[in-house]
Amino acid sequence: MERLKLATVWLAGCSGCHMSFLDLDEWLLELVQLADVVYSPVLDTKEFPEGVDVTLVEGAVANEDNLHMARTVRARSKVVISFGDCAVTGNVSAMRNPIPSSAKKVLERSYVELADERKGAPSEPEILPILLDRVDPLHAVIPVDYFLPGCPPSAPHIRAALEAIVAGKKPVLEGRQIKFG
């Protein structure tokens, strides 16, 4: 059987979901026996590859780069899983949404009002992605197959989902495995 091509992506989130992924500890060794991790923030791959079987996406869609990445992931992945509360609900990343023109406001607040020196919102076109005015959960911008909520999802929950996936089954999470927060 062809080995499963697995990817993990980090959009607008705190990377806590990836930390929780790393908490899979020794089971990670079992995982790499069954699947190739072809793209991840913990790898050095620059480009999201074609033909990925399953992608776990951490984080909400908060800037243009996130949006572009989400679309690339969808086009190149057979199964997309919203990984953690930011991807599933927007969570803390989306807390700026109630503020009108939030992108401008949060930059001003962070880099002007609260800055001690060199006041000024960063602007590096082509290098720093432009913030979107509204942070969206992943399924608001691309079709998502499965949802793995939690802030972060605990390692056993991630394992339960991945075990099903690598066995070629649908991940079925039940009860408190799908608790937000």
């Binding site: 509204r134 608001a140 793995l148 909520p149 799908i178």
Partner: peptide
């Protein structure tokens, strides 16, 4: 496991 409606994000 997720919300199928648009979030309203009221202030």
């Amino acid at each position: 496991d997720h919300v199928r409606f648009e979030y309203l994000y009221p202030q």
